[in-house]
Design a protein around this nucleic acid. Structure first.
Ligand code: SF4
Ligand code: SF4
Lengths: 155, 155
DNA sequence: TGAAAGAGCACTAGATAAGTGCTAAATATC
DNA sequence: GATATTTAGCACTTATCTAGTGCTCTTTCA
């Protein structure tokens, strides 16, 4: 239905959280306390992001996750493809394919649309997610466009 | 997973078929013979499109469906929303909402992305689907950009 | 040594998508 | 008017994907 999964959303929320604390290891417990997401599920998500080298982890007390790459380099395409597999608006892309491929009359059109959507997702990064949030919080003040580094985080 | 459903695809294929035969009533049987889709499912889809006034139907021998509006006016947004409900990249749009709305840090960002995707789907029409197909069939000849009115239809 | 925290594995339940069966109503043709 | 064709309506099954959870193991700091 052309919708993001919870995994992606939880992942993005967590990443946005981490982006606000550059360099600091944040535990799942801590993040869940803030976001209110199911703990085990978010753990699953962060594990996947860790395996994909988007975040890095340390264990033990004081451990947790932190961003491994700057938010500007984390596109939605990347995050989504890690958390829910490759983006395929239609299934005739790279996957197992579709039975209709030979006779399908809409393949090219869908392909064009898919490419456009892909472009949107490629261009939109975690930094943009954070920025959108900040702009909203800042109302319509003059800080629009300025690089942001602080979320609404009182901890 | 950000993917179109079969309903949408079948619907678009059928509409593309109808677009190639303006004014002519085409039966489900005929369309299915060409497209190879499950008959009952395509019937279901066309019924929905009929109820949504995108196509019109007549019963009895020689009956079937035909486009009610020009292909240029049929956006993907329209077709998809008829066949799989309103497009919601995130679920916090118009539906039942999401439990996280109050504290969600990515809502604005997702909203921006959703709007961009929406724009893509709004702008892309059935006519574009048909055009993309024609351009592919015509290879790289000089007919690019010319209004198309004939598909690979030998019937 | 013990507590904190991620890593790994496997499973359950719920939601959505895909597909099917059957009957009724309309309509053209004979 | 009978008959074949074709859409309309209704309800159901099955497959697939999504969401969420439980438990154990390993690492690491104090
Ligand atoms: S666009 Fe055509 S070929 Fe591609 S997945 Fe959809 S139906 Fe199959
Ligand atoms: S963006 Fe935030 S509020 Fe909207 S659906 Fe996703 S989690 Fe819920």
């Amino acid at each position: 239905m052309l919708r993001l999964t919870k995994r992606s959303e939880y992942g993005l929320m967590a990443l946005a959280y981490l982006a606000a604390r550059p360099g600091v290891y944040c535990s799942v417990r801590e993040i869940v306390a803030r976001l209110g997401t199911p703990r085990r599920l978010l753990a699953e998500v962060l594990k996947a992001l860790s395996q994909a080298k988007v975040v890095e982890a340390t264990r033990g007390p004081g451990g947790g996750y932190r961003l491994k790459r700057p938010a500007e380099e984390l596109s939605l395409t990347l995050v989504i493809s890690i958390l829910e597999g490759p983006i395929q608006v239609a299934r005739c892309a790279s996957d197992n394919g579709c039975d209709f491929q030979d006779i399908c009359t809409i393949q090219e059109g869908i392909g064009e649309v898919a490419a456009k959507i892909q472009t949107v997702l490629d261009a939109y990064t975690l930094a943009d997610v954070v920025r959108a949030r900040d702009e909203k919080l800042a109302g319509s003040s003059a800080t629009i466009g300025a690089p942001q580094s602080r979320l609404a985080a009182e901890a």
